[in-house]
Design a protein around this nucleic acid. Structure first.
Lengths: 288, 288
DNA sequence: TACATGATTCCATAATTAAGGAATCGGCCA
DNA sequence: TGGCCGATTCCTTAATTATGGAATCATGTA
């Protein structure tokens, strides 16, 4: 009769239910959800019917209930109101403030990477790559990451056109490039010292979108000596920035990642292709 | 002191806030939201901070608050758990039950449309197009809709390869085809009588995805005579089915559409390209 | 058919909370 | 600096609601 357990309010409960279904990834019965959340049944039924009225949850026949179409509307509205570039820039500025180094945001354009944004740090040394600069992918730490999600054949194609860098230190051998690229992608960080510029090191991390593709790379530019001394610490900061960007863009589930206590590398690959079309297109193939 | 106004519970309020921001499309201050919803400030502040903790809302500097990244996670999870094809089929079955006619779901494949699903009605007449059938786009009602979102040049290209139909009644003149296609797309429905099959009529409506592209068409097949008698009524049912599919897939905002009291045609075009990448890519173009 | 077994709804009640409104904060101008 | 204005937080209290648990409803089985 008298509630002894502390009460959870309806709004909180509603989002617990959504989070629960996101975690499961498949429809579940109210009873199942109540069990998972450790919540009383009567409450869950109440919350569910409210959410159902709003299209936030839907009944899926015998399978139970699942996330509803309204959530897609919310997701689209979020995406429309957020410019990834703003998020990149903000985080780049923050990383630059924290480390005092130059920070670049790099995008891919064919065989080249493009410096899309650069925040100058307190370091006074000048670096040759400025916003708008185009550099062969094979010369830089960022470049290798930007093609990490591609099929090996596509990379092979790019590597076959590799050109030597001015310093002569950048790899040009396709096999070596492929190995370096895979390693960097697996680790979630790419470090390069004095390959495209003398005495300059880059520590870059990939920014991976919801479909698992490398949308951009964030790269910290530092004097070679600093990288040799404190490279690991900097790498942690750069990858943390990349992760924060992904979370702020809704490309990574901050909550789930935290629960699972993911380590420092992003080896736990995200499943490719979340788009609504994916499964459908597969089926379309069968019919056509 | 004593609340006279009926209380709105927290869960309801939370989604009111989300709906409000979806409607605005831009960040808003708590005060503004409270005004719009006609809700007390203290309540709104409370709800907002709860939603902020969950990443469902975010503070956007001076601009106020806006939809948060968690919503994107929810939207992706919804999309991953829903197969558009299932939704198509279910609605096709329901439309067939309601009208007694055959209902087809059609997709585009190059210059052809493909019958991806067909629910047979109570009508006993047989029709030649069955699942898997490939028919030139220019011969059918569905076909014209499937290319309605393309650029005129792309359509011109397709029309330049138009072939005559067995009945000899399908249009082959590019200019006429373009006109017919535009009209159908604007109206949101395409009706065709005895062009590809004698004595058979098709009434088709486009199923338009969140980016404004025609993902599929739903088409009702009926004897010519029935179409001449009750075509309008059937057209209403077909477009309603198409709209329901879009809503169930989160491609159309059911709530907003209802508010605005949209008419029967879908002339109110959705803005093209909601994807997070859109604005970004534009900017990328500038840098590269 | 009756009987389990599990899902769903109903109900009484204590605990919480949405509303109202006052107090406080924060920025901006004079 | 002082004072003004809007934004935000705090506090009180009646109204609501999350809970526990019982009742009811499906559904499949003997």
């Amino acid at each position: 009769m008298a509630p002894r357990r502390p009460r959870t309010n309806g709004a909180e409960r509603a989002f617990q239910i959504l989070d629960c279904l996101v975690g499961l990834g498949v429809p579940a019965s109210p009873v199942r959800i109540a069990e998972i959340l450790g919540a009383p049944l009567s409450t869950i039924y109440g919350s569910i019917s409210l959410l159902e009225r709003r299209g936030v949850l839907v009944r899926r026949g015998g399978a139970g209930i699942f996330l509803g179409p309204r959530l897609h509307i919310y997701g689209l509205a979020f995406a429309r109101g957020v410019d990834p570039f703003d998020v990149y820039r903000e985080e780049a500025a923050s990383l630059s403030r924290a480390t005092g180094r130059h920070v670049q945001i790099c995008l891919r354009d064919g065989d080249h990477m493009v410096v899309a944004d650069m925040t100058t740090g307190r370091d006074q040394f000048s670096i040759s790559s400025r916003p708008g600069y185009r550099i062969p992918l094979t010369w830089t730490a960022s470049g290798r990451l930007l093609i990490g999600h591609l099929e090996p054949e596509e990379r092979r194609d790019i590597f076959s056109r590799a050109v030597p860098s001015p310093t002569g230190r950048a790899l040009t051998d396709p096999a070596k490039l492929e190995r370096a690229c895979r390693l960097a992608w697996r680790r979630g960080v790419s470090i390069q010292i004095a390959e495209s510029d003398f005495a300059v090191a880059c520590i870059a991390a990939p920014i991976v979108d919801a479909a698992g593709a490398c949308a951009a790379a964030i790269s910290l530019v530092t004097p070679e000596s600093a990288a040799r001394r404190g490279g690991d610490r900097l790498a942690v900061l750069v990858t943390a920035s990349a992760r924060r960007i992904e979370e702020n863009l809704g490309w990574r589930d901050g909550r789930k990642a935290a629960e699972k206590g993911e380590g420092n590398d992003n080896a736990g690959r995200r499943p490719a292709g979340h788009r609504a079309e994916t499964r459908f297109e597969r089926r379309r193939g069968k019919c056509g």
